[in-house]
């Protein structure tokens, strides 16, 4: 509940403050957002499984974001940044989908 509230507050803050993304952060922010989304979906699923744990979520959230950013950074250094970020997005998208499927099974049993 608090988390959902905080999410809403964050969205509102983003809309109101309308911040500009720092140039150095621009390539990583979208990937980090997708990774964080993946972590949130995983947490939702764990919650439905009854095994949600705050620390796990926090750690997996941060680790997801950092690893995704690291992969993109590495790709940029290697000159395959766009391809690697595409790959990361694909992998995270698959994870999000599978998590969403599990959540769906829990909620609708279908």
């Amino acid at each position: 509940m608090i988390a959902a509230l905080a999410l809403a507050i964050g969205v509102i803050l983003g809309v109101v403050l309308h911040p500009t993304v720092p140039v150095g952060l621009q390539p990583y922010l979208p990937i980090a957002v997708v990774a964080a989304l993946d972590a949130v979906f995983g947490a939702l699923r764990a919650m439905l499984d009854g095994i949600f744990d705050d620390k796990v979520f926090v750690v997996s959230f941060i680790a997801n974001v950092l690893v995704a950013a690291l992969i993109v950074f590495l790709g940029d250094q290697l000159g395959v940044g766009s391809q690697l970020s595409t790959g990361v997005v694909v992998v995270l998208g698959i994870r999000i989908f599978s998590n969403a499927a599990a959540i769906r099974r829990h909620l609708f049993r279908a």
């Binding site: 608090i2 988390a3 999410l7 964050g10 983003g14 809309v15 957002v33 989304l37």
Partner: peptide
């Protein structure tokens, strides 16, 4: 957790805006 979720929402909206 709430902080992270808020951060996610903020980052999401920021990215969308940018």
């Amino acid at each position: 957790v709430a902080l992270l979720c808020g951060l996610l929402g903020f980052a999401l909206v920021t990215q969308v805006h940018s």
